[in-house]
Simulated assay, not measured.
Amino acid sequence: MVGLEQNWLDVAVVVGGAIVLAWAIRLGSRYYLGQERTETSFGQAAFEEVHTPLSISIVLVGIGSGLLTLGLSDAPPVIPELIASVLVVLWARAAIRIGRRWIALLQNGETSYEFAPMFENLWTLTVSLGAVLLLVSIWDLELTPFLASAGIAGIVLGFAAQDAIGNLIGGVALYFDNTYKIGDVIHVEDDMRGTVTDVGIRSTTVLTEDNVLVTVPNAVLNSTEVVNESAPQRHMRLRIPISAAYGTDHELVEELVLEVCEECSLVRERPSPKLLFLEFGDSALEFELRVYVNHPLVEKRAIDQVNRGVYEAFDEAGITIPFPQRELSFLEDDDPREFQFSERPGDESGGADGANDSSESASSSSGGRADSSDRDEDAGSRATAADDET
């Protein structure tokens, strides 16, 4: 009886000491984390994620030690495994969060690491897989039946998850090709344009110009044409067509257009704007203005500013902006014009022969008309005789 009371006293001391230690760690953590700092270090970020699992682990270890002291660890065999499982889940979650905080600190620094999103996903996958293996080992699960059918299950999963596997491989390929990174403006083949907000193992998230989030599978991006408008530099060149009527001084056009570019807030001063005289068009002098903007997404606003300024400057200077025109002419039916034909000089014989031929043709025509009249009279006589007989 005395021994049992002593054991319970030892359990109370162990569990109580564990609770007190956990409480002390919580107080110390609050004091340490409550201090004001100009910037968050990796040690502070890691301690923010560790102090809670550490306190819980101390309490659980104290409870487990108390069970061992009472000799009850063999009676309910589920309790030690349950405690170990809780510890694995707690520290796996803490490890994942520490990795994410570390990557976030790296991204917020002066240097941008393009591998950070991919490494974050791989770290999460690795820690989760390790936690699952530890749980299998703790509960001593028998995997032989599962391994026996692994071949058939692998084939079935291969067909069922071929899209997911393709997206995974596509994401790895995009990472090693350095196609884009978070913050870049990309233009996909199907006229989708936007800013990359997240790069995952399976897909990439793009925020379009209409403020709509689009999730694109990595396999699609890996097999189609992707234009990165933010590489190799963030600023982008625009080509704006400008036309002026024939007779306009091209030097005046250049002066006015460059003055408009100086007044546009979205146009960069360096590299400086340039106006090129491209060609003589069908109805206008064709120019092309080449300017640079700071970001690809301000392209349309910059073009709007330039076009408005050029239109107003041309209007004040009296420069006409031509447009295609077409003229149509119609001939009336009662045309009063007369056409006369004359003989060629020096061809009198030909003219006489032609006159004789014309006379013969006229005679033939007259004879033909006479014969026709005779035939009509004969037909009329036969018709009268037939009436008399009747």
Rank of each mutant, 00 (worst) to 15 (best):
R337E: 14
I201K: 02
S243W: 01
E279W: 07
P241F: 03
T248F: 04
V216Y: 12
H295R: 13
T320Y: 11
V216E: 04
T208N: 09
I242P: 02
R239W: 10
L331Q: 14
V306F: 02
E279I: 02
N228S: 09
T205M: 13
D282C: 02
Y292A: 11
F280C: 01
E279H: 13
P241G: 06
A317T: 02
L213Q: 12
P241V: 00
N228G: 08
E288V: 12
L252F: 05
S342F: 14
L297Y: 10
V310P: 03
V267C: 00
R290P: 02
E299R: 15
A313S: 09
I303P: 00
I242M: 06
R239C: 00
Q325I: 07
P324C: 09
E316L: 11
Y246E: 04
L328I: 09
E262H: 08
T197L: 13
S223I: 00
Q325M: 14
A284C: 10
L297G: 05
M236Y: 15
A245G: 03
R268V: 03
K274D: 09
V291A: 05
N294L: 12
G309A: 00
L285D: 04
P336A: 11
R268E: 14
D249W: 05
E299N: 02
D333A: 14
I242E: 03
E343H: 13
D210E: 15
V267W: 07
N218Y: 06
A317R: 07
E251C: 06
D315T: 06
L289H: 01
R344L: 14
N294I: 04
L289N: 03
T320R: 12
I319D: 06
I319Y: 08
E312M: 09
R234K: 15
S223Q: 15
A244L: 08
D304G: 00
D249G: 04
L289M: 12
L258K: 07
V214A: 11
R268H: 06
S272R: 15
F339M: 02
E316A: 11
T248R: 07
R290M: 08
R239G: 05
V199D: 05
E279D: 14
D334C: 00
G200D: 04
P336C: 08
F341M: 05
R239T: 04
E229T: 08
V260N: 00
E229Y: 10
Y292N: 07
D335N: 15
V253I: 10
E225W: 07
P271E: 07
V298C: 02
S203E: 14
V227Q: 15
I303L: 08
V306E: 00
T224W: 04
S342M: 12
G200L: 07
N294K: 15
A245P: 00
L278K: 02
L256T: 03
A219F: 10
V253F: 05
A244K: 05
E332L: 11
R239D: 12
